[in-house]
Write a protein that binds this DNA or RNA. Structure first.
Lengths: 192, 192, 192, 192
DNA sequence: GATGAATGAGTGTTCATTCAT
DNA sequence: AATGAATGAACACTCATTCAT
């Protein structure tokens, strides 16, 4: 079935698959069980040897960074979608909600948000700059539209995103309660 | 069986001093440098041997727990103070602020405890129940006084406290920004 | 039997014994099988756990250094003995022979000699300075007595010691051959 | 069985080039940075993949051996040159000097080979026998010419070569000091 | 033949916990 | 009660060697 691959890609296919698998597994594992999980276990769960893990990510920290970068990129992509095609105010609040909701049950997503606000890690700088810029534009737009307190700065916004992400995460599966939290924050963000 | 209960007391003075010192040092160290700091270092900083540490706290986890419990108790005490001498609305907001500012750096602990498989609720239930009850009273009082949205429940309040704690923690040393965050949340908490 | 030890030494006795044993074993093992031997094996051979090894020597390199320091100190002590109480020329040649003969079958002894000539390692500096100074005095004395070429410097002497140590080591158990090597070198060291 | 032996040859050009390049690089790298350098790095420096390295040399140890053999062969060739065109005494001393200067940095190899359990003599016997024989002839010639102590045997000469090689190696870049060492040894080698 | 991704045993080191003193 | 030396399982990471492409 499908097309016969005349030239099986220059052999990078398996490598790329392994890399992707490692990233997926690491994301899952770090999210659910914390960053303390041994590298060996991650490798085993991905079906490869430790050596392979370290070939793709020279350090456990590098693996963590890669996970975060991917999360940040996902965020940026979705933010991008929302941004284009909505009125500034609407875009701002939709985006806030989206970012927060993506982090439910995923504490490392919150970490990623937080990292975007702190940005000490060199490897993360590029991708965290991306969303930070997007959010900056979004914030300015909403403020110009008179939908958000004019005195609010980008750092506070990032901190609030990470914080509300955590709040929602801690609340767990309680849609009504989550909605109430959004109401509180959104109301508070509006001028006056 | 049935030894005369002489209940020795004299030597306890030093022991109690050591215990208190260990708790102080552990609080300081865990807060500023994370829970990854080796027990031996904590013992040294407290001026005792590791053995002494483990005599008082049979496990590192137990030490973490004890630190948490004491924090919670301190918070409960301060909350009590605030509660008893102020108008309900004022007491509520003062208390919110106090708890947020006291909880900076605490999230690390909770996660470590959870990761260690401790049933956080069982271990800390007693002391955490105390503040939870106080907060419930405070919330109801503020709602009756018309200072807080009537539909807000205790779970959301707790989640918000944790979340804003994290936001403030991430923001770091920026008093003006921190104030802006409080303004947003306090404004949002008020009815309508 | 024996004296009842009223006060068993402040408990350092065992620790010191372990440390000494580790040093002995490491010396033996490094000498006979090279520095590539795993730390764990050294610990096992000394009858202790790895942790104990690392408690006494924070690094494998530190252990190696300690071995070398002890060798250098041994050399210095024996050199000292020979120096005092002999005529300068005699002392010089006796000492040369002694140093070389101690290194037979002990390549790390040669290393120690070499280290005294190079002295990059900070930890070795003190002890290597000691013998270097002694040998410097010895050399000057012998040169003043007209027994050694006046143009020979200390660096060359140290290099020669290490080199002849290696030569003798490679020659193995052949007393006559060893003697011939000494004859060659001693003759060459004399003026003209 | 019994395929027609076509004896392919064409593609061998590249293979031979690779082999030679690997040997060159390995010699350089092992000499300057020790035998601990990873195979992969050597392959990269030679511009080939690890697989190619292991196709040519089934083992790291085999690569080491090949490097040694080539060094010995080079030495033998130069020794031969010196031998044939000079008076016996001159040839002997020139050759001594040459071998010492060529062997700088070689001791590392021999030790690594020995440590790896290779029977150095069997693996390198052929090529080392060559120089040994030449040196034997050279020694005898010089002794007949009255330029070298008659009682000196070939084993001591070999040991001296290795030892002085090490001495010179340790001395590093100090031409004058090196010269003084040669003076000492050459003077010592002469009769009486 | 060549490539380089994959492997996994092996290494140095850490750290919570125990126990002799 | 206190001490700190000892323990050893656990961890991150390396590297010679194999093998699918």
């Amino acid at each position: 079935m499908g097309e016969a691959p005349r030239r099986p890609r220059p052999m990078r296919a398996d490598a790329a698959r392994n890399r992707a698998r490692l990233l997926d597994v690491a994301t899952e594992v770090f999210t659910t069980r914390g960053v303390g999980v041994p590298t060996e276990e991650i490798a085993r769960a991905a079906g490869v040897g430790v050596g392979t893990l370290f070939r793709h990510f020279p350090t456990k920290e590098a693996l963590l960074e890669a996970v975060m970068v991917r999360r940040l990129e996902t965020m940026a992509a979705r933010t991008e979608q929302l941004t284009t095609g909505s009125a500034p105010a609407e875009a701002f609040f939709d985006c806030f909600r989206l970012l927060v909701e993506q982090s439910v049950g995923k504490s490392d997503f919150v970490e990623a948000l937080a990292a975007a606000g702190v940005d000490v890690r060199s490897a993360l700088r590029e991708s965290s700059t991306a969303i930070r810029d997007q959010l900056g534009d979004l914030l300015t737009g909403a403020q110009r539209a008179g939908a958000v307190r004019p005195e609010l700065g980008l750092p506070e916004l990032l901190a609030l995103l990470a914080g509300i992400g955590r709040a929602v995460e801690q609340l767990g599966a309680d849609p009504a309660g989550r909605e109430r939290i959004f109401e509180v924050v959104f109301a508070g963000l509006r001028p006056h």
